[in-house]
């Protein structure tokens, strides 16, 4: 019994800063409230129904799913590729390790500022380079065209976050016992076979970390979008988190914004939690075997 006393403080903190805000957010989502007035009006499930029928909300959900696919494939895949290339013992390995990881240390707002200039459609770096190499026809209105703005943002996030996946995979590769690779080589396996049959399965714990965090990042993506486009132009790059912020503080509809938060929690729970559970089980299985 005595040991439980030591848990009182963390439990209280957990309840106060985790459970209570969730319950309070759900309570708010059942009301109409501008966040300033002292009166809240009960609307029941009205906020949820309004969002459910609103094309703007559907668009944000679709964008979140696009971000999920992107996060799982692009930074993770590129990070793995860079880690494998560097693991082969090329020259200036230390230099490249720093170069690959450096963007990840830059704050989101600075990344947004950098890429706003990179993507400037007339004199930005990307358009200028394309014009210089004779590919000016490929230049786009990167952040101003509603059809491509999300892909442009993904480009900046790829530059920003690949370093993390690279670092985790690189550390994982360095921890693989050399004997396993050597045994496969003696057995006559090709480098391709060695990667898929030996290296990649042994990288599983690293993969789970990278993909698990990527999935979580996809659901909570906010700062880079808000700082670059504020969800625009005309809602085109909006995700649920930016929509929630805009509705809460741009329109002072705290109830509806809370309903988005509840939806986000549920969707993240439905999409992400089964995946994390499944992956964790796979790690346990691979360790057992």
């Amino acid at each position: 019994m005595g040991h439980w006393i030591y848990l009182i403080v963390p439990i209280c903190l957990y309840l106060m800063f985790f459970v209570v805000p969730i319950v309070w957010t759900f309570w708010l989502s059942l009301h109409s409230w501008n966040g300033i007035s002292r009166d809240m009006k009960w609307v029941g499930g009205g906020n949820f129904m309004t969002l459910f029928l609103q094309p703007r909300f559907h668009h944000a959900v679709v964008n979140n799913i696009a971000w999920l696919i992107f996060y799982l494939l692009a930074p993770s895949g590129l990070g793995l590729l860079l880690a494998v290339i560097l693991d082969r013992g090329i020259r200036f390995e230390g230099f490249f390790r720093i170069v690959f990881f450096l963007p990840f240390t830059v704050p989101a707002v600075a990344v947004a500022a950098i890429w706003r200039w990179m993507y400037e459609p007339t004199n930005g770096l990307i358009t200028t380079v394309l014009n210089t190499v004779g590919l000016g026809g490929w230049a786009q209105n990167w952040l101003g065209d509603p059809n491509i703005v999300t892909f442009s943002l993904m480009g900046s996030v790829l530059w920003w976050t690949t370093g993390f996946a690279f670092l985790v995979f690189f550390a994982g590769l360095r921890n693989i016992p050399v004997e396993c690779i050597e045994a496969a080589q003696i057995e006559g396996a090709t480098p391709w076979q060695i990667f898929w049959r030996v290296t990649f399965p042994l990288l599983w714990p690293s993969t789970i970390i990278v993909l698990g965090l990527a999935a979580i990042d996809a659901m909570r993506v906010f700062d880079i979008i808000w700082a670059t486009t504020m969800g625009g132009p005309a809602y085109a790059s909006e995700v649920m988190a930016t929509q929630m912020y805009e509705i809460a503080f741009g329109r002072l509809e705290m109830g509806r914004a809370s309903a988005i938060a509840v939806y986000l929690l549920v969707i993240a729970g439905v999409l992400i939690m089964p995946y994390i559970t499944y992956m964790s089980r796979r790690v346990a299985d691979s360790e057992d075997s």
Binding site: T122, N141, G144, D145
Partner: peptide, 14 residues
Amino acid sequence: ENWSGKSWTQSGDD
């Protein structure tokens, strides 16, 4: 052209 991809300061530079 492409005005929607610029901030007001970038358009000011133009």
